[in-house]
């Protein structure tokens, strides 16, 4: 699948977005990101886990241990209310930047 380098800060936003529906464990987060970006991004564990831990420490994610689909104990992440607010704020910010960029690039 084609790989697009992630823009600075986009990984955090993608993870928050990936977790906005339901709590997921690490691998599932990675798969969900691939899915919602239609395969443009695949997150390697060397980037995924530092980001998850960072977001958890910011208080945007909360982690708890749960049983996976194969009855394997896995660590599940979910959005906290603060995380939800952060997602909304970052989404707005992103839209503003993306809109501005598009306008700038499409102007003749």
């Amino acid at each position: 699948m084609p790989q697009t380098p992630l823009l600075q800060g986009t990984l955090d936003l993608l993870i928050l977005k990936a977790l906005s529906l339901e709590p997921l464990h690490g691998l599932a987060v990675s798969r969900r990101v691939e899915q919602i970006t239609r395969g443009a991004y695949s997150v390697r564990p060397g980037s995924l886990f530092p980001a998850l831990h960072r977001l958890e420490q910011h208080g945007w994610l909360a982690a708890s241990w749960g049983a996976s689909e194969h009855n394997r104990r896995a660590k599940y992440y979910r959005l906290t209310p603060a995380g939800r607010r952060q997602l909304a704020a970052e989404t707005d910010e992103w839209k503003r930047v993306a809109g501005a960029m598009r306008a700038a690039l499409e102007s003749a």
Binding site: H25, G26, L27, A28, P45, F49, S68, H70, R72, R73, A74, K75
Partner: peptide, 17 residues
Amino acid sequence: LDLDEELHAYIELLAAE
């Protein structure tokens, strides 16, 4: 320990895939 277990879970889940 937590980190270790989290990563091993990741690998096992990946292997299961």
